[in-house]
Write a protein that binds this DNA or RNA. Structure first.
Lengths: 338, 338
DNA sequence: GTGAAAGCGCTAACAT
DNA sequence: ATGTTAGCGCTTTCAC
């Protein structure tokens, strides 16, 4: 059996109230008793029970981390890294992370995760796009919520985002600097805020360079921005236009799919066509040629989110706060000056 | 404020004890009161407080998932998938997973994870090799512990393992069937049980085929079985022996590193040299040529571990149980009949 | 400066 | 079949 506050009190010859005061190092405690108690705590290896403390403090010391099951199952370690970041930061703040997934087709009749219903979390970090009925359900609850990499349209939520527009511009400008003037864009669901922003960055740079935005070499037919769809998008692209010299893919997964199509069809990368992705989730030398991309600070998104969360919990604040993290261009071997 | 058992009792005009009985659907409760209570619960959207329940039941409803920080940070999604598996299974069993990392150089003076000290977990799943001082520290505690993908030498722990010896045999036999008779082995730390077993499988098959185990084409110089070390191992291998026609790498990460060396040095895969890995963590078309490997049921390892855990918690059992999961050969394009 | 005591929300043994 | 009550381990107000 684990030692309780009573055991400590008995051993130190004080009341349990005194022990509690020492644990919280209250000022008005004589050095003498403090020492006695501390030594008893040490000897017994006492640690306050999480449940008992949670019961009276009406908190849990946990924060929930939610993402949809399909995001969690993605092969690219995007959300995994965000999770790792928040886990590390939670550690620093004496918090624990309870991760759970929700269905990507969550509807109003589904139950909320148990840890919410049972008041087993003090706040929620929501990573990636989640169904809006889910967000609606949450509005009854008053704990802090932080969105990461996705922000609902309403203006009331806190969030940690990356600069997707800027990223789109960086990628496109790089391609332009390399001498390309027929630069295609492939993306998934254009309604997704991140993809839309990346596309807008693309358009900004294309226009700024005096080139024209040509729908023939823009493809966001598919919903899900994964490898197979990258392959398909490339196929459509090249069947419509033969003189594409560069592609900006909305993420690395689609880029890898598109590269596969090019390899299968004798299009040499980067000699015949350059390609750049977004996210930096393809580990450097795993793919040939190494993929140029826009680096996204994934771990940092997690740590920033958890930092915000820890502050909001501590200050019992509900104010809406936003963090925008910068991205950078990573030039590898899939893009080349022509 | 969330509703408590009192609110339900008041609304249904019964005592809180009755509410509790209904919640646990005790037999001796009239259908009538049961309905009353249930409807109150429904209306108030009542859910028992996790902390309060944990306090009296002396449990937490959580299970701790522990791995070393370097395992967690590995780019290959090996332990991530084990974690996902246990998370899904935890869901089924109304359990939550608290993940935390420990230092890979944990020593006797380090503190145990807080959730252990604060009795905030009912059991521990330990994934991958962890420092033995950590395991020693754990012996004071009486909750169930399940090891996954690594089992300390002592015979007392429960664990979910894969058949590494068999996997080594499958890989090597495949290479032999392809007509190779100079088959190299590259591995990391041979003291690691998994690597040792894979190596033993290799030896078994080599000997069974009447070939001889030749130290010149065996390399486990490096400790950590990652990509860079795979590269180095291949370099040493080919500098010692020119007539290697196939390599069995102890895992995919090393295989990918070795492939990079071969590409850099004009050794064509699989024409000049075949290579097979282990783990199946390189997503199919990411690397060229696609890597043959031994598939490891990673998600299943996680679900099996959590199943065991749920049973042990429910039955308050401490008996040592072992699960051995099979592996299979996946033939892709990096191995070829000669 | 320290202790007594109430109470957090729940379970379970014991009454009725 | 249902209610009363004593805790579970802790925090916190209020006395002293």
């Amino acid at each position: 059996m684990n030692p309780t506050i009573k055991d400590v009190a008995k051993m130190a010859n004080v009341s349990i109230a005194t022990v509690s005061l020492v644990v919280h190092n209250h000022k008005r405690i004589s050095q003498e008793t403090k020492d006695k108690v501390l030594s008893a705590i040490e000897q017994l290896n006492y640690h306050p029970s999480h449940s008992a403390r949670g019961l009276v403090r009406r908190n849990s010391g946990n924060v929930g981390f939610i993402l949809t099951d399909d995001h969690f199952l993605r092969t690219e370690p995007f959300y995994t890294h965000i999770f790792i970041g928040s886990e590390f930061e939670a550690h620093e703040n004496e918090l624990y992370v309870l991760l759970t997934t929700i269905n990507s087709d969550y509807n109003i009749n589904n139950k909320l995760p148990r840890f919410i219903l049972e008041r087993n979390v003090d706040g929620l970090i929501i990573a990636g796009k989640v169904p809006s009925p889910f967000i609606d359900q949450l509005s009854k609850y008053s704990f802090p919520i932080i969105f990461v990499d996705y922000l609902p349209n309403t203006n009331k939520y806190s969030g940690v985002m990356i600069d997707n527009v800027k990223g789109g511009e960086l990628a496109t400008e790089h391609l332009i600097r390399c001498g390309n003037n027929v630069i295609a864009f492939i993306g998934g669901d254009i309604e997704h805020p991140s993809i839309r922003d990346r596309f807008n960055g693309y358009k900004n740079s294309i226009e700024k360079a005096g080139l024209n935005v040509n729908n023939e070499i823009i493809d966001y037919t598919e919903d899900y921005p994964g490898r197979p769809n990258g392959y398909n998008a490339a196929e459509r692209l090249f069947s419509r236009s033969k003189n594409i010299t560069a592609i900006f893919a909305c993420n690395d997964a689609m880029a890898v799919g598109a590269m596969q199509y090019m390899k299968d069809n004798g299009i040499r990368i980067p000699y015949d066509c350059s390609i750049i992705g977004f996210d930096d989730v393809v580990s450097d030398n795993a793919i040939d040629p190494a993929l140029s991309t826009i680096r996204v600070p994934k771990m940092e998104m997690g740590t920033e989110a958890m930092k915000l969360m820890a502050q909001m919990i501590k200050n019992n604040s509900k104010e809406c706060r936003r963090v925008l993290l910068p991205v950078d261009l990573i030039v590898r071997d899939s893009t080349k000056r022509i």
